[in-house]
């Protein structure tokens, strides 16, 4: 049996809402340690992997590891029907592994709403990329910045063009674009420390200058999720997809891996 409870408006609900523009179906794995989700966008440019440790939920129980495919848009639609103050329970019983049950309980416990959501096949969303998760040292540069600043950069650049070039070297981290109507270049002088301050842009890992070109549509989508958190960590390498990561509590994370654009 698997069962988790959370308050309406909790971080999981916020994240599920924020990933909807990229993801329809996700593969969810539950273990005693927590709730993880993997999903691939329909164009196979972005892979999303998140892990919510059990302690971030109001209560959490998982007797046996389980894996299921969930139509995220349908689940979010159901969750939206909850009222302020409701406690939301998501449950899968061993006897019935064809759907999950979502329950809302009103704060005064006088009203309960039960809904069943059919599970779907999401095996194609399961990429064996676990090795990427421990590949921080393989990235040529990793920096952290306030997620509000990341969102602002993406919005400012998308006025001009669809792409952003992110360049990182020891002296500067820049976001730039060039379009028909002009160009924008946003430069940040980074701090260099292992303990990034919340308000600053910090270069935490540097093996050499690197630059990548990315579609701003995907970057804005990553930025949308990141604004649920204070800071975002971005890793660049010419041999790996761009990594955008936010930490959830001590052990949890949400990570996007975004394939860049190349010059033909």
């Amino acid at each position: 049996m698997f069962e988790l409870t959370m308050a309406k408006g909790s971080i999981l609900q916020g994240v599920l809402e924020a990933i909807l523009d990229l993801v329809n179906v996700a593969n969810v794995d539950c273990s005693s340690k927590g709730f993880s989700l993997q999903a691939l966008d329909t164009e196979h440019v972005v892979f999303l992997s998140l892990f919510f440790p059990s302690e971030v939920f109001r209560s959490y129980r998982c007797d046996e590891d389980c894996s299921m495919g969930i139509a995220i848009a349908d689940m979010v639609d159901l969750l939206r029907a909850s009222n302020d103050g409701d406690i939301i329970t998501i449950k899968v019983t061993d006897q019935n592994f064809e759907d999950i049950t979502i329950t809302f309980e009103s704060p005064d416990k006088t009203k309960t709403t039960d809904m069943d959501l059919q599970l779907v096949d999401a095996r194609s969303h399961r990429l064996k990329i676990s090795e990427w998760h421990d590949m921080e040292s393989e990235y040529q540069a990793i920096f952290c910045m306030p997620s509000a600043q990341f969102m602002l950069n993406c919005k400012s650049l998308s006025v001009i063009d669809d792409d952003v070039v992110i360049r990182v070297n020891e002296e500067v981290i820049s976001f730039s674009t060039k379009g028909k109507s002009g160009c924008v270049n946003i430069s940040h002088v980074p701090n260099k420390t292992d303990n990034p301050e919340k308000a600053s842009v910090t270069l935490t890992h540097m093996r050499g200058p690197v630059s990548l070109t990315l579609n701003l549509r995907y970057m804005k989508s990553c930025a949308k999720v990141s604004t649920l958190f204070d800071q975002v960590k971005i890793g660049l390498s010419t041999k790996l997809p761009l990594m955008v990561e936010c930490k959830i509590a001590e052990k949890g994370y949400i990570r996007y891996f975004v394939a860049p654009k190349i010059t033909e």
Binding site: V45, S124, K128, K239, A259, K261, I262
Partner: peptide
């Protein structure tokens, strides 16, 4: 012109 890469270019074991 720029071409959008797919994740499969980085990873084959799907």
């Amino acid at each position: 012109s720029r071409k959008q890469m797919k994740l499969s270019a980085f990873f084959s074991g799907k």
